[in-house]
Design a binder for these strands. Sequence first.
DNA 1: CCCAAGTGGTATTGCAGCGATACCATCTGT
DNA 2: ACAGATGGTATCGCTGCAATACCACTTGGG
Lengths: 186, 186
Amino acid sequence: MVQDGTFHLIERLGSLLRSEQRRLGAPHDLEPVHLQALAYLSRANRYSDTPIAVAEFLGLTKGNVSQRLMALERAGLLTRRPDGTDGRVVHLAPTARARTLLRALTPPPGWRAALQTAGIDEAAMVSALTALLAGLQRANAQRTFGQCQTCRFLRREKGGFVCGLTLEPLTPADTQLLCREHESAA
Amino acid sequence: MVQDGTFHLIERLGSLLRSEQRRLGAPHDLEPVHLQALAYLSRANRYSDTPIAVAEFLGLTKGNVSQRLMALERAGLLTRRPDGTDGRVVHLAPTARARTLLRALTPPPGWRAALQTAGIDEAAMVSALTALLAGLQRANAQRTFGQCQTCRFLRREKGGFVCGLTLEPLTPADTQLLCREHESAA
DNA sequence: CCCAAGTGGTATTGCAGCGATACCATCTGT
DNA sequence: ACAGATGGTATCGCTGCAATACCACTTGGG
């Protein structure tokens, strides 16, 4: 097909980013999936920093993800902490070393410069791609993993924010993290 | 980082498309890389339908790609034809069955609808992403793989188009295919 | 015309991601 | 209280992937 230009471009950018991740991660014995899992965890809120959430976010099976996470823990890039109330759940957090690595490799060198010289309106691009992503996820009945600040459960009360599902208070920083229970405000 | 929204969105779309490809290809014993290789070959011109071009396009090693292509040939999805003048080169072409498969799976079901309901200006999106992709490829000294119609070597002569490198005539359809020797007209 | 360097392609090896399946522990709801 | 659902791990087999080595052919100076 001669159309579908957007599709081919996004797929191509995906391939390119993936091979970049392979190249950049190799010196640290990291495969693309490791960098992606760590990047997600560094942006996930306290309801979404679990193995099952990583698996759903990346579209991989929980069994597979469980093995990757063990490798990351052995490499000293991840810490595990059992949940306080639910005995099945564990919470994951990238270590300081992992966060340093992420800052160096994400986005890959040259990305921000390319975005600049391409003259891209970042706000418009983010809103367009967000809508596209939401549409695809709705078509597949998948989770949205949006930020709390765009979630229909978020309540703004005097003195701060509250999650309408857990009824727990959220800091302003919390509302910028990704949540597994996110549902669009529209 | 709380910015880099475009980066995270494109990476996420890439993950999503990849897992879609895995799901859609599984019934036909096709992995994501197979679909990507076939999709590329269906869009490549006669100078770019070779194993080395596939490897460069996908950012994989030629050895690996060589093995994948043999699998595709065994599966009856690809035909090989030796080059007429250069004894080292082979040309690849997806079979009719492969093209039928591609039409069914590329882009994945729901993509066009999502693009619609997101209200995306396709022309603007294509031009923005093209510029971004070109910038990234320039930063890594990679090939562009653009269409002839945007290539600085393309000559418009009376009666049709001519490639300034090979001095061979190009049909209008040819100028919409991807070329390994492509260099931006800018 | 020749030969060294470069290019396109294949063969082989080892490793690691990935799904499938099975299994266990814990939670939830009626 | 118990059946079903959910989060997580263990094990198996397959396959993508890079690395290395190797071969055939082409190219470009002398």
